[in-house]
Design a protein around this nucleic acid. Structure first.
Lengths: 96, 96
DNA sequence: AGCGATTTTACCGTAAAAGATAAGATTCCT
DNA sequence: AGGAATCTTATCTTTTACGGTAAAATCGCT
């Protein structure tokens, strides 16, 4: 973590989860039972304070019947790292 | 983990990462330098033996210049967030 | 077959995710 | 305002991701 773009990613994903949950009228407690993930853990994820594992995200998506892509929906590539300078960006440089 | 669908998810995601890496002609060692993730860790992820964190997947996607969705691409759910049967599917049951 | 590169596996530390529980803080009511 | 539900935060324990290193195993290659 520590990184700034990563914190934004976690915050974005968390916000999408919370929005989806709100649409479905579920409480954290209810989603906790559906996913098997504790309510405190879900809270941390939704508020971007935790870096969830892939299968954790899947359980959340499944419980709410949305695709993983719906929750991830990065768009990250539009955001920032879209294009690299001719030989810029981060290449392997001198490491060959 | 332990779950079967979860193992399949990890295997699928790992395979997609490996395919993407192959297309770009990168070795694990090279991808390790680009991502800051060790080659052994990448190997475990690609072979579906590890459940990576969200930011780990992001670093991998970024390094290969593909979207997170490209790597996740579950396809399991086509459903949009909106439709949740009034009292259908798996509900909270008796837990109220 | 043998060599070099790549990949896998194993072991050890550290850090962090996740469950449980409990205590605070919010928000939403009437 | 008060009370109830919901959400957040804290603490503790267990599990596991991740890096480093090194040793196997695998895959080209000529």
């Amino acid at each position: 973590m520590v990184d700034d773009a990563e914190k934004k990613l976690l915050a974005d994903v968390g916000r999408r989860i919370r929005e989806t949950r709100a649409v479905q009228g579920l409480s954290l407690e209810q989603l906790a039972r559906l996913t098997g993930i504790s309510a405190p853990a879900l809270s941390l994820i939704e508020t971007g304070k935790r870096d969830p594992r892939l299968t954790t995200l899947r359980r959340i998506a499944d419980a709410m019947r949305v695709s993983l892509a719906t929750i991830i929906a990065d768009g990250s590539h539009a955001a920032k790292a879209s294009d690299r300078a001719p030989s810029g960006g981060y290449d392997l440089g001198e490491y060959q």
